[in-house]
């Protein structure tokens, strides 16, 4: 991604900081700002958001005229999508499906996010992890979740 005369790392991270800073600063304008002596809820975020944006600009500028020296690593798309998918799935269904099915499915999918794991290996791993997690968290530590949730006709 040799877009420009900027170092990619500095340019991208700088842009992220500018964007994040801008979000916090703009959003805090909708809260009461107050004064330095009687600060409202928007005061600190406005200051810090502005500072973050400026820092972001400085970081990006710092990368000027420094061509990338190293090859960027490939994006682990499969891992990104599957692992984030697992986390979202876990959150969305833990109350409805219950502990055992959610952990079983989640660990299978998480294992599949590595190209080195075959479906058979992933399935074995999923069963092992489900037994282990159920024993540790639900039986051992008394976590209050149902084994099988209300969505399942059991």
């Amino acid at each position: 991604m040799a877009v420009s005369k900027f170092e990619t790392k500095d340019l991208v991270s700088g842009c992220i900081f500018v964007a994040a800073g801008a979000y916090f600063a703009l959003e805090s304008l909708t809260y009461e700002i107050g004064t330095a002596f009687r600060m409202g809820p928007g005061f600190m975020p406005l200051m810090l958001g502005t500072a973050l944006s400026l820092l972001g600009l400085a970081i990006a500028a710092n990368g000027w005229n420094k061509p990338d020296s190293e090859e960027a690593p490939v994006w682990p798309w499969r891992g990104l999508i599957l692992i984030i998918g697992v986390i979202v799935f876990f959150g969305a269904t833990i109350r409805g499906l219950g502990f055992v099915p959610v952990v079983l499915v989640s660990s299978f999918v998480a294992a599949m996010s590595s190209r080195l794991n075959s479906p058979v290996f992933a399935a074995m791993l999923a069963v092992t992890l489900t037994v282990m997690c159920t024993l540790i968290f639900v039986v051992g530590l008394g976590m209050s979740v149902p084994w099988f949730g209300p969505w399942l006709p059991l």
Partner: peptide, 22 residues
Amino acid sequence: RALFPAIVLFACIGCYSINQNI
């Protein structure tokens, strides 16, 4: 490759168990 799915799972279960907040 066998360890990291366990880490993901532990992370989800652990964080959920703190406040039951998804």
